[in-house]
């Protein structure tokens, strides 16, 4: 628990990751979401699903880079997982460090509060009275987290609970650990 994840995250971000123009990234994501909204005729539930599934496919691939660059071993508990996701994972790929909050008593659930969401920098949701209620604009993150954690044998429910874009005071993602997929942990770890 005492490991300096903040420093590790900064080091990996500074020295070992490729950087791109953040506006290119933000605008690309924006046009993907806008296109999905058009494709699904503003059926935002479908858009959310589609974003999550795209994120999932990213997550199951991205985890490999995360492991190759950080050399982390298995976490001893979900608290450590939370620390690593926020201080190293988000730092490395999005250069932001969400706050870990609301850890449940059983240690299986927490919220990530994104003070600064690079995906949504220039975004205002369409004012059709539906988008603000139904669309989770950054839902791709939910899929990424779910996919990445599943590849390290953690079955986790991930969902957005708040989004500044919808008028909430903050942007929050909730993660709940369902179970550790013990049968799928590769032999030989310990």
């Amino acid at each position: 628990m005492s490991k300096p994840y903040k420093l590790i995250g900064e080091d990996v971000y500074k020295n070992r990751t490729e950087k791109i123009n953040s506006e290119l990234f933000t605008l690309t994501y924006g046009s993907v979401v806008a296109q999905l909204c058009r494709d699904y005729n503003n059926d935002y539930k479908k858009v959310n699903e589609q974003l999550e599934s795209m994120g999932y496919n990213i997550g199951i691939r991205l985890i490999e880079e995360f492991l190759a660059k950080t050399n982390f071993g298995r976490c001893i508990n979900f608290k450590e997982t939370a620390e690593i996701i926020s201080k190293v994972g988000f730092k490395m790929f999005l250069n932001t460090t969400p706050t870990v909050d609301n850890f449940s008593a059983d240690g299986k659930q927490f919220n990530l509060i994104l003070e600064d969401n690079p995906l949504a920098e220039f975004v205002e949701l369409p004012d059709d009275n539906k988008a603000v209620k139904e669309l989770w604009y950054s839902n791709v993150l939910v899929g990424v987290l779910k996919g990445a954690l599943q590849m390290v044998q953690l079955d986790v429910d991930v969902s957005f609970v708040k989004d500044i874009l919808r008028g909430d005071p903050s942007t929050e993602i909730k993660l709940r650990l369902n179970k550790i997929l013990k049968d799928e942990i590769p032999a030989g770890e310990d």
């Binding site: 492991l67 950080t70 050399n71 982390f72 071993g73 298995r74 590769p186 032999a187 030989g188 770890e189």
Partner: peptide, 14 residues
Amino acid sequence: IQENQTGNQNQTGL
């Protein structure tokens, strides 16, 4: 188990 710096998680296998 000793902390390893390489990312190799093969601790007890062949």
